[in-house]
Every structure is written in structure tokens, then in C-alpha cells.
Design a protein around this nucleic acid. Structure first.
Length: 420
RNA sequence: GUGGACGUAGCUCAGCUGGUAGAGCACCCGGUUGUGGUCCGGGAUGUCGCGGGUUCGAGCCCCGUCGUUCACCCCA
């Protein structure tokens, strides 16, 4: 019996795990830079939180959730997205009673029982933010700017930003009536009509050319926006213009979660396959109340870490292996190993990373190991060194050596490493 | 959930019209006793995804199954 990882999960092992860390940490630091604070949340929640928050008619809830019953008979679901869980925590801990907007971020894995595909996994990683309690176009713009900055910090350039406004509930309802009327006049197959019943906006997103051309004359939600929504959206755009963040207004953009209202956006990468959305988000005016909180507006986004990494690889911008130990110790014999362990221990508090050649490989083999691990410096610990107390510190790149003692080692290393 | 392609050493792959497996890289040892990256010599490595069938005989054919992958659907 050979065990394999469960179907469709994304997992990262060396050497690619370092690229994953880099992707995640780069996106997170863009977020922290704007003062968002971490909420470390459970990976499972009460099922009803998602059915109410995300919307029972969405694909995510209706057919993609990992739901099970726990021993107490409670219905539990592995989180398929981050927003509603984050808001539940905001409400539960009263973060929305303090300074507004309450600004939180989360990172971690999410679960959706879909058919796996390039860039689509059953367990995937996202990082997201939520800003709750203030309705301000400048906040919308900043949220978008943070995601944009994160992607740029990764070095991505071949992506674009789609934005639109979904307006408020009444304008959407009015549009929906007209849209359904229009769709009713079209000659569509049963499956497509069923999708239209669930969410007519979906048809704007259909990949088939014939459907696209049929939908070309359909009424556009943008034309139904209230004056308030229109002005709000104009203000968001003007902030983005001031920030020199390029975007395209895409009135046909569709989001799969029911809670979005007003400003919504999506980052799409140009070099990825069918799963090209690397991040998306928007504002949600009714969601807080829907899940039992105060009636407060909010806005946020989720960025796909797996997909951002795929994008960075496609653009060839992942930094080449910056990870390397500073010092590689090669002890010859038992006494030398003890000394090596001591040196490693004494370095633990410093910034110097240190590895030891374990086992009883030949010196040549150990040197090869040092080379493979791209160690910057090597010290061979043999009988003569132990006796004299002085060691040859070898700089691998140049081959140059200098002699150090136990007491001067740390200082010498730090000096050498600071100039590199 | 639907459809197509694929599944051979750690990795990338070869294997002719069926005759019980190979290359490159990586790995280990050695090329004078204690110093790497190149070069040379040597070495280990596979229930050919799994189960069944056809056949004297299957990695190559058939069925099933699991997984991967691409697309639809949907989305991060």
C-alpha cells in the first residue's frame, strides 16, 4: 500500500516550498504595510455560516463544500472562502465596536470539492483582507491598491485589473427583471437556462462564442445604478487614476459569491490557463447583518497564493534560491562533532545560519554537500584544529581562507556576511 | 459533475508491428593519507500506478479502478 496525498490538493516541498513561502510572505507584507492585523481563524465553521453568508444558490455552497457531521451532531464545513469566517470573528470579538474600519487579514488553506485542474485545487491557499465599518470610495481604492502592490512586489506585470460596480440591491433587482426578460427571448439550451435562473449575470461570462454574441445586446447592470452608486464608483475610479493603477471597467464581470454589492474587482493573469483569476474581491453592504452582526458596510479581497506562484513562475520572476546556509561545519570524528554542535549552538542567537555535515561521509563527500547546499563558508574540524583552537574559514565562492578562533568566529562571519 | 490526454528508476523521459526494462540528470564510492564546483572510473535504484482479462508470453492489446493533466462548469 502506497499512500498518496488526497486528490487535488496543492502541497509544497523543497525546493519549491521556498518559492511558496516567498509568494505568501510577499503578499502578506504588502497587507501589513497598510495596518491590517492578523486574525488566525478555524479552518472549519458551522455550515450555516456559509450557507447564509456566501449564499445557498451559489455553486460554492450548493455543490463544492466539504461538509460533515461532528461527534456532537453539528454540521461542520471546511471553509471554502475567507470573508464570512473573518467577519464572524470580527463580530464575535467585537472588533467592529472599536475604531472603524476594523482591518483584519487572514492567510491559510481553503477547501472546495471541485474537479482539480491547473491552478484549481481542492485545498488551496489564499490570503485576504477585510475592512469593516466605513463606506468610503478611498477605502475601496486602497483595498485594490494593496492587492495591486502585492502582485507588483512579486514582480508580476502581465496581469490586468477588471472593476465594476454591482450597485445596491434595488438597482440590481430592477436590472435582473429586464435581463431575465431579455434572456427569455433567446434560444438557449436547458443547462444554460438553468444557470440563468440561478444567476442571470453568469451568462455574460459564458465562454461559448454563440452565447457571447447573443448576450451582446443584453441590458447592462451599470446602466441601472443609482446616482449614489454611480458617484461612488466614479470616485473610486478617480482615486485609482490618481494612484496610476491601470484598470479596465468590465460591466460584464461576474463574481460567484452572492454577497457582493457596489465596487467589485478581479485581477486576471495573462499567462495562466483557464484558472487565471489570481485575486478578487469587492464590497458587501448586507453581509455583516446577514450573519448576525451590526448593519455595517465592508470591503475586502482574497488573493490566490497558489495561482500567484504559478503566475510568478510563468513570468519567471521567482528569485533564484536565496536560501543558503552561511556556515557549513564538517567535523571529522566524534570529538569534532561535539565542537561542531557547540559552535552551531552558540550561533543560534545570531543571524548566522549554520549546518553540520552529519554522518560519516568522506571529506570530499561532505565538501560536495556543502557545495550543493550553497553554503557561503565552510570550516573543517579535524584533530589539528581542535588542538590549536584555530580554524580555516573558507569562502566557497572565492576559495579564499582566513583563520579564526572560536571567539572571533561570530564577529568575522557577521562582518563577512554583511558585505557578502 | 461532464469530456479528452497521460501514468516506466528520486527527476525528465526512451522502449520498434506484444518475447519478463534503458538513457540523461540526481545520488553513493574512488582517482595517494584532511577540502567543493569541471573531468575520468565504478556502484545502488524499478512488484513498468493498482486489479482483472486476452495470449504460450504484456510495459506494450482489452476492461475496471486510482491518480495526474487539459478543457467545460466554477473560481482563488
Amino acid at each position: 500500500m502506497k499512500f498518496q496525498a488526497p486528490k487535488g490538493v496543492s502541497e509544497y516541498v523543497p525546493p519549491r516550498s521556498r518559492a511558496f513561502e516567498w509568494t505568501r510572505d510577499t503578499l502578506v507584507s504588502a497587507i501589513k504595510h497598510s495596518g491590517y492585523q492578523l486574525v488566525e481563524l478555524p479552518i472549519f465553521e458551522d455550515t450555516e455560516l456559509f450557507t447564509r453568508g456566501v449564499g445557498a444558490s451559489t455553486d460554492v455552497v450548493s455543490k463544492e463544500m466539504y461538509t460533515f457531521e461532528d461527534r456532537g451532531g453539528r454540521s461542520i464545513t471546511l471553509r471554502p472562502e475567507g470573508t464570512v469566517g473573518a467577519l464572524r470573528a470580527v463580530i464575535e470579538h467585537g472588533l467592529d465596536r472599536g475604531v472603524l474600519p476594523a482591518k483584519v487579514f487572514y492567510v491559510g488553506q481553503f477547501f472546495r470539492a471541485e474537479r482539480p485542474q491547473a491552478g484549481r485545487y481542492r485545498q488551496f491557499y489564499s490570503v485576504g483582507i477585510e475592512a469593516v465599518g466605513i463606506d468610503d470610495p478611498a477605502l475601496d481604492a486602497e483595498v485594490i491598491a494593496i492587492a495591486y502592490a502585492g502582485f507588483r512586489a512579486l514582480g508580476l506585470t502581465k496581469f490586468h485589473l477588471d472593476i465594476t460596480s454591482l450597485g445596491d440591491a434595488s438597482s440590481r433587482a430592477a436590472h435582473r427583471v429586464d435581463l431575465m426578460k431579455y434572456i427569455g427571448t433567446l434560444d438557449l439550451d436547458e443547462a444554460t437556462l438553468a444557470r440563468a435562473q440561478l444567476n442571470p449575470l453568469r451568462l455574460f461570462d459564458d465562454k461559448r462564442e454563440e452565447v457571447r454574441s447573443l448576450m451582446a445586446g443584453a441590458p447592462i447592470l451599470m446602466d441601472y445604478l443609482s446616482e449614489y452608486s454611480r458617484d461612488h464608483f466614479a470616485a473610486v475610479r478617480s482615486h485609482l487614476d490618481d494612484l496610476n493603477i491601470p484598470y479596465v471597467i468590465n460591466p460584464r464581470m461576474v463574481r460567484g459569491l452572492d454577497y457582493y454589492t457596489g465596487t467589485t474587482f478581479e485581477f486576471v493573469h495573462d499567462l495562466l490557463g483557464a484558472q487565471s483569476g489570481i485575486g478578487g474581491g469587492g464590497s458587501y453592504s448586507g453581509l455583516m447583518e446577514e450573519i448576525g452582526g451590526q448593519s455595517l458596510p465592508g470591503i475586502g479581497f482574497g488573493l490566490g497564493i497558489d495561482r500567484a506562484l504559478l503566475a510568478a513562475e510563468a513570468e519567471n520572476v521567482v528569485p533564484v534560491d536565496e536560501f543558503a546556509s552561511d556556515l557549513y561545519l564538517i567535523p571529522l570524528g566524534v570529538a569534532a562533532k561535539s565542537v561542531a554542535l557547540g559552535i552551531s549552538e552558540s550561533l543560534r542567537g545570531s543571524e548566522v545560519t549554520c549546518e553540520i555535515a552529519f554522518g560519516d561521509r568522506s571529506l570530499k563527500g561532505a565538501m560536495k554537500g556543502a557545495d550543493k547546499s550553497r553554503a557561503r563558508f565552510v570550516i573543517v574540524l579535524g584533530d589539528s584544529e581542535l588542538e590549536s583552537g584555530t580554524f580555516e574559514l573558507k569562502h566557497m565562492a572565492s576559495g579564499a581562507t582566513s583563520s579564526v578562533t572560536l571567539t572571533t568566529l561570530v564577529q568575522t562571519l557577521q562582518q563577512a556576511l554583511s558585505v557578502k
